[in-house]
Every structure is written in C-alpha cells, then in structure tokens.
Amino acid sequence: MSGGVAADASALLLEAIDVVRTYRLGRDVEVPALRGVSFQVDHGDYVAIVGSSGSGKSTLLNLLGVLDRPTSGQVRYDGRDVRELPDAELARLRNQRIGFVFQSFHLLPRLTAVDNVILPLVYRPGTKRERRERAEAALAAVGLADRMAHRPGELSGGQQQRVAIARALVTEPALVLADEPTGNLDTTTGEDIMALLESIQAEQDTALVVITHEPEIAHRAARTIVLRDGVIADGSSP
C-alpha cells in the first residue's frame, strides 16, 4: 500500500473544499448534512471514512461519487469543479473514473454475473465481444471464473459482492468507492472482500475510499477521516 501521500499536484485525484450539503425538508426546514468538509484523495490512496449513522457519510459518498452536487464549496475531480459540469459529463465521469461497491450489492437479478459486470461497459463505446472479454477477465480476477453464467440469486452474499467488485473494476476506474462493502456479510467473508479490494487497490494503483461504521475495517486503511455531525472530527489532512 502506497498510502498515497504525494506532494506533487499530479498525484491529486479528487479534492473536497469546504463542502456543504444542505437538504430542504418542506418549505422552510433546512437540514445540514455536511457543514464544510475539506480533504484530498490522491491516486492510489486508501482512505476510510468513518462515522456513526447520521454523521453525513452517505451524503459525502454521493458527492464523491458525483451522484449529487454540493450546496456550496467544491468537489474537484482531476482539477474540474463538479458543480460546473453538466449531467451528461457527470455520467461520463462516473462511468470512466469511478467504480461503486454498495452494501446491498445492487446486482440486477435477471442478469447473469457476466451480464451484470458488462453493465457499465454498455455506456461507453466498444463491441459486444470486447465487453464480454473484459467482463470475463474481471470476474476471473475476483475468483469467479466458474460462476459467469450464474444469476445473483444463485450466488452467496460474498460471491455477489465479488460480482459487484468485478463490475466496479471492469472500467479500470481511478477511484473505487465502497459503501459499507462488508455490511451485509459475515466476518470471515467480510475479511475476504476487504482483502480483495485492498489487493486491487495495491496492484492497480486505484484509489480506494471505504465508507464504514466499523472501526476494524477503518483501521485497515492508510488514512482515516472521521465524520461527526457533518464535519471532519479527525484526519482531514493526510
């Protein structure tokens, strides 16, 4: 693990600058979820974002995943301010730079493992054959070469999460965002999944940001950011 502490600007992947995200409930009620959060993630970094329920973790994940835009402040990817990018550009950014791993896997039940992994590839140019080859390679890399044609319902929780990881990696993203990746798994399987994510992070120089409420998961990361009540309580600077 590199730890990703690099001083030069070229290593910088994403940057949150005084990020505020406020939700409006009804007409006059505003609920602040994030109240000025700043930190950086470099290429190949391994960061854990920790916090209890309601600390703003999920909001931060959505912002880092460019599924959402900040109310104020900036989230910058490769130096570009997310707030200034149109929706189609954000979609392209998600497709090309970010891989998502969700707590509940989010696999499409009617598709086979390999078709689930192909999913992000259909939103970029390429032939059917190329997509299939890449998806099969990604599944093989997570140890599921013999489960290609299985549907999610025919796979264990750990295997499903591996399919989801293969889906996140098949696009060769710069950043893997894992939201409670072990939350629905038993301890042993959770260990395996974390080990898999870490090996990928190390081997492919992919930045890995894990959001978790479990301290033992957080401790594995090179760096930990602790969120409390929408602000960083600890670890904002690398």
Partner: peptide, 16 residues
C-alpha cells in the same frame, strides 16, 4: 427505480 439508480451510478446518462 433501483435499477435506474444503479445504471445512472454506472454511467448511464438521462438520455440513455
């Protein structure tokens, strides 16, 4: 809905 959310997370544009 969840499928749509997932597809968007994976890079689908509104248009797609």
């Amino acid at each position: 809905t969840r499928e749509i959310g997932l597809r968007k997370a994976l890079g689908a544009r509104t248009r797609d």
